[in-house]
Computed example of a mutant assay.
Amino acid sequence: MHNNKKYMIKKIIYLMTFITLTAFSRTMAQQRESFTGAKAELEHYNALYIINTADEKHINSTLRNIKNVLEDPRLKGKLTVEVIAFGDGVNLFQKSGNFLEKLADLKNKGVILAQCENTIRERGIPKDQLLPYISYVPTGNGEIVIRHYQGWATVHP
C-alpha cells in the first residue's frame, strides 16, 4: 500500500507540472501574438545618426536605417532626424561621393545633414568640395554630447 501511495503522489506531481507548463506555454504564445512593438506615445521624437566611417556598406546601411525610421507609421509626423558626419564620415557629404541621390532624398524629407567643421579643418577639405545643402557644427563629438543631454536617441549602426 505504501508504494501505491508514492506512485499516486508522483502521478499527481507530474500531472500538475504538465498542467502548469501547458498554461505557461499558452500564456507565452498569447503574449508573442499580441505584441506589436512600442507605442509612440510622445508628441515628438529626435534621433541622431552617427557616421564616422568611410565604409560604404556601413554608410548605405545607416542611410537605409534612416529611410526606414522615417517610414515607420508610429513616428510619422513626430520625428526629427539629424545625421552627424565626422572623421572618415566626411566622405558621406563629398560632391564626388556615391550617396548624392540618397542624401538629396533625406534632405527633402527634412533630415538635418551636419558635418563636423573640426574634421574638414584638420584634413584641409574646402567646403566647396562638400554638398551645398549641408549644415556645419564645430565638433561631431560636441554635437553628440549636446543632443544626448537634450534627450535625443543616438543611433550608431
Rank of each mutant, 00 (worst) to 15 (best):
M16A: 15
K102G: 01
T80H: 09
G87K: 01
R74H: 12
N141S: 11
R121H: 06
N98L: 08
I9E: 14
F99M: 03
N46Q: 12
Q30H: 12
A114F: 03
N52I: 06
K127T: 14
I66M: 05
L106Q: 06
I146N: 10
P73L: 02
M1N: 10
G77E: 07
R123T: 01
G77C: 04
Y133D: 07
A54L: 02
L92K: 10
V81G: 02
Y7Q: 15
K57S: 12
A40H: 02
R74L: 10
K102N: 13
F99H: 12
E122I: 05
N52P: 09
Q94L: 13
K95I: 07
F35L: 02
L92M: 02
L130N: 03
D55L: 02
I112R: 09
L113I: 02
Q30V: 04
S61M: 10
K76D: 04
I19N: 00
V69P: 01
A153I: 09
P132W: 02
M8E: 15
L15I: 10
T22R: 01
R74T: 01
T80D: 15
W152L: 04
C116W: 06
Y136N: 03
I51E: 05
A47N: 06
I120S: 02
L130S: 03
N108Y: 02
W152A: 13
E143R: 12
P126Y: 02
P138L: 11
K76C: 01
F99A: 03
V83Y: 08
K102C: 00
L75V: 08
L70F: 05
L106V: 05
I19R: 00
S135Q: 15
R121C: 00
D72S: 13
Y149C: 01
D55M: 01
I9C: 00
N68I: 10
Q31V: 02
Y136T: 03
Q129T: 09
E43T: 08
H148M: 13
L70R: 04
S135W: 00
Y133G: 08
V145S: 11
T154A: 03
L92R: 00
L79W: 09
L103M: 08
R26Y: 14
V155T: 05
E117T: 05
L75Q: 03
K102F: 01
K11T: 14
E56K: 15
N68H: 11
K6L: 12
L70V: 07
V155L: 14
P157M: 00
E143L: 10
N98K: 14
N46P: 00
I12H: 11
T36G: 01
L131C: 05
E117H: 02
Q31R: 12
I59G: 08
I66W: 07
Y45V: 06
K78C: 04
A85W: 04
G142K: 11
P157R: 03
T139S: 15
E43A: 14
A153E: 11
G77N: 08
T36M: 06
N118F: 11
P73Y: 06
E122M: 09
N141Y: 14
Y49V: 09
A47F: 07
H156M: 12
I146L: 13
